[in-house]
Every structure is written in structure tokens, then in C-alpha cells.
Amino acid sequence: MRKKLIPAILLVSSVPAILFSAGCKKEPPGNSATATFGAYDTEPDWNDTSKLIKLGYAESQGKHIFYTYCVWCHADATPAGPSNRSNLTPMPPLLNDGDKLNGESDEYLQNMITLGGGALGKSEMMPPYGKTLTPEEIKSVIAFARAIAQPPYQKPGRPGSAYAPK
């Protein structure tokens, strides 16, 4: 009887094995994230247009506000062609100017945009946008500026934290 048992077991266990393997399907491919798919929006690096900087939701809102209100003076190329920047003395900083802007805190930039340059002791030519844009919108513009800054912006952390400036 034992002689018949082992082949019987093998036969019986092979049936479910075949059934299982037939039923096993490779999971249908989902959507893999490509570089641009993962981000809500992208902006080409102003210093090297072949590189794309990924933007989140808040930063992309800031991008649209920037290209509506600020690009005319704070960039060298605008959608309409000539930029107003070279007309102005002192020349306003380019938005991606990390050297000038990275050192300023978010609060300072928020105040600068909200109250205007004159109120903070800088040129009067920067108008106050506090009554034109909401504080959320101004924050999003600052977020956009941080995202495209060259050299890149490092968020300051508490002393001793991993994010503290070196």
C-alpha cells in the first residue's frame, strides 16, 4: 500500500499546484512615476534650462503669481519680451538669486512683499502688495523662490538639528 501512497499524494498535490499557477497573474502594471508625473508642476532652472525643478502645489501657485505680477522686474526674460529690470536703479534681484535671497528669512521676504521696499528701508520702487495679494499667495511666491534658488536654498533648522546651517 505504501508504494501506491506516494505517487497518489504526488498526483493529488500536483492538481492544486497546477491550478494555483494557472490562476497566478502578474499584477497589471500600474502607473509608474516618471520624473514629471511625480511633481505637480515643474520649472526649468533659469541657469540651466535643461534641468527641471519639481514644484509642489503651493510652489506652483506661487509660480503663476510670479509670472503674473513679479516677472516684469525680477527676471530678465518675460512672456511679453522686454524686462523692466534694466530700467531700474538699483536693479532688483533676480528671483532665483540664491546669493542674495537665501540669507533672508521667510518673514523678512513676506514683509518686503507685503509692505513694499520703502517701508523696510529699501528702494521705494518695490510696491507693497499687501492689499493686492493675500498672505497665502505671498507665501506661495516665497516658496517658489526658495524652490528655484541657485545656489539651492537650505531651510534653517534649530541648532543641532540636521537642518541647521553649517
Binding site: 497573474k25 499584477e27 497589471p28 502594471p29 500600474g30 502607473n31 512615476a33 514629471t36 508625473f37 511625480g38 511633481a39 505637480y40 508642476d41 502645489y57
Partner: peptide, 21 residues
């Protein structure tokens, strides 16, 4: 995670990529 985000055997409406939100 896989069921919520991706296309699986019984669900074919995965997350919309952020780019097309």
C-alpha cells in the same frame, strides 16, 4: 497601499498623477 493607490486586479482607477491633478 497597493489597493488604494495603484491599479489592481479588481480596481482600475489608480491615483491621478500630480501633474494632471
Amino acid at each position: 497601499v497597493a489597493e488604494a493607490h495603484k491599479t489592481t486586479l479588481a480596481w482600475e482607477q489608480p491615483l491621478l498623477p500630480a501633474r494632471f491633478l
